[in-house]
């Protein structure tokens, strides 16, 4: 019987599932102390209208590392689960967990990911920073999370291209809403907007803020095609 632990790191939580809890927790906290776990995601987001996506892909092909192999395409299904627990305060504590799987390569492992609260920081910080832990898992993760009490919050399909530039990852993806319940994922889906979502991200251990500056410079090179920016989720939440 695996056991599950939640470790609070700053404002965020890390989940450990382990059969031997003591040792796992010890080694994890040791690893955390040594700053070898890439648990911070530096993120910039933007979008590009459908008719200009070819121009953007062309420019990315020129700027990024994987030139000879061409852009890597992906077709993923992402499910966002939420674990709601009554916290000490009045507001219930919500722990989001994301499950992602590749529809175009069914034999690949699934991915479970925790994404923490984003920190915008002040004006001098070029990117959004949020904690992020991800791991590979099998397809039974959905049942497991359901048993755990997680509920699926929402799901979507992302289809697009991935580029690399050093440690930076650039994705250009179309986001689709799942069709009605009677269709399989990947069928009967509809795009939610006339634009492609563009994300520039780096996963790095805590304290490697220098990478953010590289990202700012890279984002600068994509202007005015895409405006990659720090986007405040809280402000978006208030928008109607």
């Amino acid at each position: 019987m695996p056991r599950i632990f939640f470790i609070k790191v700053g404002q965020n939580y890390i989940i450990i599932m382990s059969a031997a809890p003591g040792s796992a927790m010890d080694s994890l906290s040791a690893a955390l102390k040594c700053n070898i776990i890439p648990n911070q995601e530096y993120l910039l987001q933007g979008s590009v209208l459908d008719q200009y996506v070819e121009v953007l892909l062309h420019r990315l092909r020129g700027l990024c590392d994987n030139v000879d192999s061409g852009p890597e395409s992906f077709h993923d299904h992402e499910l966002s689960f939420a674990l709601r627990a009554q916290g000490s305060g009045a507001a219930p504590m919500v722990l989001p967990l994301r499950v992602r799987r590749a529809l175009d390569s069914p034999e690949s492992p699934w991915q479970l990911r925790y994404v923490g609260q984003q920190e915008l920081g002040d004006k001098n910080r070029p990117t959004v920073v949020r904690s992020s832990i991800d791991m590979a898992c099998s397809s039974t993760i959905v049942e497991f999370l359901t048993e755990l009490g997680c509920r699926m919050d929402f799901e979507y399909i992302a289809r697009g291209y991935m580029f690399r530039k050093g440690r930076m990852k650039i994705t250009v993806s179309k986001i689709f809403k799942m069709g009605n319940m009677n269709t399989k994922p990947g069928e009967g889906v509809e795009p939610i907007s006339q634009s492609y979502l563009v994300e520039l991200s780096v996963l790095a251990p805590t304290g490697q803020d220098a990478i953010a500056e590289d990202m700012r410079i890279f984002a600068e090179q994509l202007r005015p095609l895409v405006q990659l920016e720090k986007i405040d989720y809280k402000r978006l939440g208030n928008m109607s």
Binding site: S80, E155, Y156, A158, I192
Partner: peptide, 25 residues
């Protein structure tokens, strides 16, 4: 006139992917 991206679309997409806005069943 070149307008390659729309701020509204950016916000829509980010809110959808980040918070499930417009995606919840």
């Amino acid at each position: 006139t070149q307008q390659n991206s729309s701020v509204a679309d950016t916000h829509l997409l980010v809110a959808a992917v980040g918070m499930g806005k417009g995606l919840k069943m």
